[in-house]
Amino acid sequence: MGTLQTYPMGPLLSNTHMVHYSGMDNRIEPQYKLRMPAELRDKLKKAAKESHRSMNAEMVARLQESFEETTTRPVRDGDLDALLDLLQARAKEREK
């Protein structure tokens, strides 16, 4: 059974399944079924496309980044525009 957790964007449900890969290394890797709001999925899909990764690879990369000790990450499309918007808004606030 999955565990239901509530987050600001709504509930997420995840199930864990063990998958056995046939082959020389005989690895067993966990797989997770994850339900998420459509809006979040769309954002993830867009980010994966911009990073030239699968959605799974994008999720794994983002999770790994969240556990790294440093706070740096690669610059993504839209980051500079968002930063510029923030700086312009702050400059307008100071002018008042």
Rank of each mutant, 00 (worst) to 15 (best):
L84H: 09
M55H: 04
A47K: 12
D81W: 09
D79H: 15
P37T: 03
T6K: 13
Q5F: 01
L40M: 14
E95R: 12
V60C: 11
A48H: 05
D79F: 11
A89G: 15
K46P: 00
L80F: 14
E50K: 12
E50F: 07
A61N: 09
D42R: 08
L40Q: 11
R76W: 12
A61K: 10
D77G: 13
K45P: 00
P30G: 14
Q88H: 05
E29A: 10
S51H: 03
R35I: 03
N26H: 12
A82S: 06
M24T: 06
H17Y: 11
E50D: 15
A82M: 07
R90P: 00
D42S: 07
R35E: 12
M1C: 05
K45H: 12
M55L: 15
F67W: 08
L83K: 13
Q64C: 13
K96I: 07
E95C: 04
Q88G: 08
L83S: 12
R76S: 15
K92H: 05
M55E: 13
Y32P: 01
H20M: 07
R76Y: 15
R35Q: 08
V19D: 07
E50Y: 07
E58A: 05
R62V: 00
G2E: 02
A91H: 10
R35C: 08
E68K: 15
M9Q: 11
K43Y: 06
L44W: 01
K33E: 07
R73T: 08
P11R: 07
R35H: 08
T70W: 03
R53P: 00
A38H: 12
A89W: 04
L63F: 08
K33L: 06
R35W: 07
N26K: 07
S54W: 00
A91D: 10
N15P: 00
F67I: 09
L63M: 13
L86W: 03
P30D: 04
E58G: 00
R73D: 01
R41F: 14
E68F: 06
M24S: 12
Q31I: 02
D85H: 12
D25V: 05
D79S: 02
T71K: 15
A57P: 05
P74G: 04
P30E: 05
G10L: 12
K45E: 09
N26R: 14
L86S: 14
L4S: 13
N26V: 09
R62C: 00
E69M: 13
L84P: 00
T3K: 04
E69Y: 10
K92C: 05
A48F: 03
A82H: 07
V60L: 15
S22R: 06
A48T: 11
N56I: 03
L87H: 05
E39K: 02
E29D: 08
V60G: 01
